[in-house]
């Protein structure tokens, strides 16, 4: 668990250093995600020398992602500082947010399904049924 946590934090660190060093407009953790993806693609080779690496990384990431909601609480509690802004613009903001989210969900899902049919990569062809892929 310590090894996998170190790997994840190291990827984030490298991501932050590159993003800040070059002044890229991309968030550091997002670049870190791409770096970890590259590391995982090389995992076949790593696994031979350090067999427990892969399994530990899987369980650490499951632990982090299973309680993703928890991680949003501290920033969200910041609402207590902005009650005045919410009182002034709250109704408009909520209306804009609800309608925009609705439109975004519909447009995204329709685009995905339409292009999926056109490009011949629909679910039926893929043969996936919502089950996890077995490696």
């Amino acid at each position: 668990m310590i090894v996998s946590l170190t790997v994840i934090l190291l990827c984030q660190l490298i991501g932050e250093v590159i993003v800040r060093g070059f002044g890229w407009p991309v968030p550091g953790p997002v670049l870190g995600m791409l770096i970890l993806l590259a590391v995982l693609s090389l995992r076949g080779r790593i696994r031979k020398s350090v067999p427990e690496f892969g399994r530990a990384l899987d369980s650490t990431s499951k632990g982090l992602l299973a309680h993703l909601s928890l991680l949003f609480i501290p920033a969200s509690v910041g609402v207590v500082q902005r009650l005045d802004v919410l009182a002034a613009y709250g109704a408009g903001l909520v209306a804009a947010l609800v309608v925009s989210t609705f439109i975004t969900l519909v447009v995204t899902v329709v685009t995905f399904v339409a292009v999926s049919r056109l490009s011949g990569s629909s679910m039926d062809d893929a043969g996936a049924t919502g089950a996890e892929e077995k490696p």
Binding site: L9, Q12, V30, M33, L36, L37, S41
Partner: peptide, 13 residues
């Protein structure tokens, strides 16, 4: 939040 964002690479992979 940062490490969790990085960890999204694992289900992706």
């Amino acid at each position: 939040l940062g490490p969790a964002t990085v960890a999204l690479a694992i289900p992706l992979y």
